[in-house]
């Protein structure tokens, strides 16, 4: 590898006074002075959240309004800062539309003081029940307020379209049964 020595061009007298450069700088800043402002005035104006944005983790319901989470606790396991805490529970047999799922979360807490918005919970979820959506501001006056419980998580998450209808298919299969 040859080293190429590049001679620095000597500065002219005018350049050495820096005055043309200062004038150029003043011109540039003046242009910005009169240019339209780029700022987004936050509470009134909201940024357009891009697709794939990782906001506050939320729980979503399927198009029929049923909870999707089956409390497999994979998110709890994968969560690097251990922000997620799930208490699993059995869905009682008398819940006609959900009984065949058998398992659901009794409690689902995400400590937003711990959450680092990494999105691993969303990535790992086998039921597509947890999503980091476009909610980006999360604040509270107490530590307790910063823990999102199940109700709040569903409120934030809303309903998302479902491509699979896994449990509906399972229920249909159960109702039709075997040829046997």
């Amino acid at each position: 590898m040859a080293v190429i020595t590049v001679e620095r061009k000597p500065l002219t007298f005018l350049e050495r006074t820096y005055l043309p450069q200062i004038a150029g700088g003043l011109k540039t800043t003046f242009k910005h002075l009169i240019a339209p402002k780029k700022t987004l005035e936050y509470p009134e104006q909201r940024p357009a959240i891009p697709v794939g944005y990782r906001g506050v983790p939320t729980l979503v319901k399927d198009p029929n309004g049923r909870e999707k989470c089956v409390s497999c606790q994979l998110c709890e396991f994968v969560c690097p800062p251990k922000a997620i805490r799930i208490t699993p529970g059995e869905i009682p047999a008398d819940q006609a539309d959900r009984a065949h799922v058998e398992k659901g979360p009794q409690a689902f807490d995400i400590d937003m003081l711990r959450c680092i918005y990494c999105g691993l919970c969303q990535e790992v979820c086998p039921e597509e029940a947890i999503f980091l959506q476009n909610q980006f501001s999360m604040s509270g006056y107490t530590r307790a307020e910063m823990v999102n419980h199940k109700d709040r998580l569903y409120e934030l998450g809303g309903t998302l379209p479902d491509a699979h209808h896994k449990w509906d298919k399972k229920k249909t299969a159960e109702e039709h049964g075997n040829a046997h």
Partner: peptide, 9 residues
């Protein structure tokens, strides 16, 4: 033990 806790915890 049913639905109480995942074994990996």
């Amino acid at each position: 033990f049913r639905f109480k806790m995942r074994v990996w915890f």
